[in-house]
Nucleic acid binder design. Structure first.
Lengths: 326, 326
DNA sequence: AACTGTATGTCAAACGTTTATCATTTTTAT
DNA sequence: ATAAAAATGATAAACGTTTGACATACAGTT
């Protein structure tokens, strides 16, 4: 059996109370007993049972992370950063791939509650989940409206869309399309699209909006894109995420459209993966380091003081990454 | 406060015992009381406290996942799949990015123990961690030797290396290099390299091994690759992971080397990401679906019966994905 | 000698649940 | 009507830890 407090106490020749005091640094303790206790803990490879501790009212030091799917490099990088930051603060992370399935998301929420997580960071796609309100749990959202009093951290999507359109135009494009996800209220890609539309309108150009459902497989998406590019003589395309931009580049190559002479291309996200392995792609970078730092810091504030007042929205500036595609 | 068993009992007008029985489906229960209890649970949004349950000796239904870094798409996809499989079996996942830091890995292990995880799946890079043996916890390893009696699941690295070399040769290459990570005992990339060397030897060709340390940033790696390609007239390169293959393709483009006429290229991993967004890349696909299924299934076996005998090694077949780079 | 501060111990309650035991009541079958 | 089976309850112990109340012992100061 695993060693318990009692075993440590026996080996160290002290009482359980003393051992517990050592562990929690509580009350008077001599250096000598501390050392004895630590030695005993080491010898037995003792690990306090977190279940028992948190039953006592201690925090679980667990945080739930709900994202649609971390096999998407953007979320992978975000989750990786968040995990690192939280680990440094002595928190552990329970990972949830909600797969954009509201029921799964609901199940995950329940599960996280049952596991007594101290808080949740959510960046899932499902909107209007009333459950988020019910539990009085600290929650911070990335880029999605979940419910009132759940703060939202996001990049400046509007400005990003504007910047993308501007970049395309300045690179010589005048028939500029946007490939974006299905727009539903509260979705962040809306902001990107609005920024794009606003810029085009200001310049007297017509927006051309193509909605590619988020759930579409890359193969189907490729077909769609191919059809679109064949039927419209666009010379500039803004893709509201980098992966779609890669598909578009692939299609362009198939159609013998040279980038950036025939077709200019701007993506969105600018993960390390894209910057490192696709330095050619012009894209709008979301400040992932700042985003994750802010998400974590806000969550920890809420955990420390459930009633602390936070802003409703935190919008972080984006940055143009100049490649050669626009 | 959160509702507890007692509150549910009161509302349903039954005893705690009965509620507990309903929850655990234990003993005689009438349909009527069951419904009453379920209704009360719903009304209160009751969630059993998993901490308390597992203190009772119940499993925590928690599994620890230790990988070097999920911002690497390969691990992201693997972790994503594992999480989905485990969630379907009612397990939750605690994510650990060990960052290839032995101390962090050790800390994570401790932490997972303290959280009473039922088991661990590890694919971290650090070798010879004696801690793995100490705790009598079910562990399954991906592609790394951790300790005796920790089963290893991996793809057929040797055959993959062989296949890659063969593919390059059959595509017309005769000066074939390998770009691989630093080799240390127990590392899986060794197998890939050995397969590559074996094939070349069999064909009477000289192996050219270039070790690019795993920790190198993409920018530095790119420089290294550039130097290598400039100083050797290779017409075929096998990269022991797809990301390095992408870098090599980028460098080739800079050096005006046409792929596959001047330079043939084969990668390794074949994640969905690569297959979807880089269909041109010829690569060796690790069967991620099978790998994750097997990892999970072995772990669950070990959890169900700590003494069940498992093989030491499970080697899953790889598959050549024919792109146009070789 | 009396006091103070430091260091440890004993004991017990509490956290929320499970589970066993025993008891009681209701239902069903004969 | 009687026995067996089904349904529920009351009670308490257990899981491993924390924490408070209280007691005791010894060191160093006055």
């Amino acid at each position: 059996m695993k060693p318990k407090l009692n075993d440590v106490a026996q080996l160290a020749g002290v009482s359980v109370t003393t051992v517990s005091r050592v562990i929690n640094d509580h009350g008077y303790l001599s250096e000598k007993t501390k050392q004895k206790v630590f030695a005993a803990m080491r010898e037995l490879h003792y690990q306090p049972n977190n279940m028992a501790r948190s039953l006592q009212g201690k925090n679980t030091q667990l945080v739930g992370l709900i994202f649609s799917d971390i096999s998407n490099p953007f979320f992978a990088e975000l989750v990786s950063r968040i995990e690192k930051l939280l680990f440094a603060k002595n928190y552990k992370v329970i990972l949830c791939n909600s797969a954009d399935d509201p029921q799964k998301e609901r199940d995950y929420l329940q599960m996280l509650m049952a596991n007594q997580v101290d808080g949740i960071i959510a960046g899932a796609h499902n909107l209007g989940i009333e459950e988020y309100q019910q539990y009085g749990l600290p929650i911070i959202s990335f880029d999605r409206y979940l419910s009132d009093n759940v703060p939202i951290v996001s990049s400046d999507n509007f400005n990003g869309g504007w910047l993308a359109a501007q970049t395309l135009q300045q690179a010589g494009a005048d028939k500029i399309a946007i490939f974006t996800g299905k727009s539903h209220a509260g979705s962040p890609t809306n902001g990107r699209r609005e920024g794009y539309e606003a810029y085009l309108k200001q310049q007297g150009l017509t927006p051309h909006v193509h909605e590619l459902p988020f759930e579409l497989s890359p193969a189907l998406k490729t077909m769609e894109i191919r059809t679109i590019l064949e039927n419209h003589a666009y010379n500039g395309v803004f893709c509201s995420d980098d992966l779609t931009a890669l598909l578009t580049a692939n299609v362009a190559q198939q159609l013998k459209l040279t980038i950036p002479t025939d077709l200019r291309l701007v993506g969105y996200d600018g993960t390390a993966l894209i910057r490192n392995y696709h330095p050619n792609l012009t894209t709008i970078e979301q400040p992932l380091a700042d985003i994750s730092t802010l998400l974590v810091s806000l969550l920890l504030q809420r955990i420390a003081d459930a009633n602390c007042t936070l802003e409703e929205k935190y919008v972080l500036p984006v940055k143009l990454i100049k490649g050669i595609t626009a």
